[in-house]
């Protein structure tokens, strides 16, 4: 089992640390669905379950930094998604004047061909956030499904799926990003698909590892004995116990995806002009580092604040899901 349940990126190592560790300090099943409790007569389990979930929520709420970050993050995401449509100018509109410094009317100035730069930044934020959210959604879905199937069915299915996972891990993702980005063009949706195609593997391994250890538990045996279908067992009994890892991973992916988009844009392979993204803006703004520093700093700050708050929320969630916290906070 040790061969595949290991982290592949630094972002996921805390979860996998659990996997690698012998059972005594390992993850306990957490957040079991309440419905399950009625299937069993084990009264203790249901009490523990409920308190477990409450404990997680309470731990997260107590995590001040994470709560503040969550607030900032929600604000930024909502702002990014609707900000562009509230602003006076459209990002594509060419004004009669061009190449103007900031004024009250145009707080970031006007670019070389006459577009309002504030509108461009808002548009960029929207695109970056859209890409990041879609990547998180897609990679989490794919990773969870593949991990769960591999872990549940084991044997040949597991081998095939894990070799495919290995394949994706061995192919250097950036090379494929670069290649595919050229081929499919610079739309935000295509870009998200490409990035997501290389972000699901760590989660697949984590979920597989958890499912592997959970599928032997008595309550799963019991559900199986009661005639529950495989799909039902996976969805109702196994995945809810892996939910901690899944959520934490999904949060982190948002941050990594924002940065991945930025890198691709820096190499000229992200979202293509005339559309824009924070990554594209900040790489264009790099040339203006000294002459129009606001073009360099503001998109950069937005990227950092989004990624940072996502990371803090992820950290808070990780702490909340981590049973060791009981010990620590005594």
């Amino acid at each position: 089992m040790t061969d595949t349940d290991r982290p592949d990126t630094p972002e996921t190592e805390d979860e996998t640390l659990e996997d690698r560790r012998p059972v005594d300090t390992g993850v306990q099943p957490s957040g079991q669905p309440a419905a399950l409790a009625s299937d069993h007569t084990d009264h203790e389990l249901s009490v523990q379950t409920r308190s477990q979930r409450q404990l997680i929520v309470r731990r997260f709420l107590q995590h001040r930094l994470a709560m503040v970050s969550l607030f900032v993050l929600v604000l930024l995401i909502v702002g990014s998604l609707v900000g562009g449509s509230l602003w006076t100018y459209d990002y594509a509109e060419q004004l009669p004047t061009f190449n103007e410094p900031p004024t009250w009317e145009h707080p970031m100035g006007i670019d070389d061909i006459g577009r309002d730069l504030m509108a461009k930044v808002l548009r960029g934020a929207q695109r970056s956030v859209q890409v990041a959210l879609l990547v998180a959604f897609l990679s989490t879905t794919v990773g969870t499904i593949i991990g769960a199937i591999a872990g549940y069915y084991r044997g040949i299915v597991d081998s095939i799926l894990m070799r495919i996972t290995d394949l994706f891990l061995v192919i250097p993702s950036l090379a494929v990003f670069l290649l595919l980005a050229r081929i499919v063009g610079g739309g935000w949706f295509q870009l998200a698909l490409i990035i997501a195609a290389f972000f699901w593997m760590p989660l697949a391994r984590i979920v597989r590892a958890e499912v592997l250890s959970l599928r032997e538990k008595e309550y799963v045996e019991a559900a199986r004995a009661l005639g529950a279908s495989d799909a039902r067992i996976i969805v109702r009994h196994l995945l809810p116990n892996a939910i901690g890892s899944i959520i934490v991973n999904a949060t982190i992916v948002v941050a990594v995806a924002i940065l991945a988009e930025t890198s691709l844009s820096y190499l000229g392979l992200g979202i293509a002009a005339p559309d824009t993204s924070l990554g594209l803006l900040v790489s264009e703004g790099q040339a203006a580092f000294k002459t129009r520093p606001h073009l360099f700093y503001w998109p950069g700050f937005l990227i950092i604040i989004i990624a940072l708050s996502v990371n803090f929320v992820g950290d808070g969630l990780r702490d909340a899901f981590d049973p060791r916290q009981k010990r620590v906070r005594q």
Partner: peptide, 9 residues
């Protein structure tokens, strides 16, 4: 544009 401005600076 920005490259030229920056070098001119």
């Amino acid at each position: 544009l920005d490259l030229v401005d920056q070098i001119d600076g």
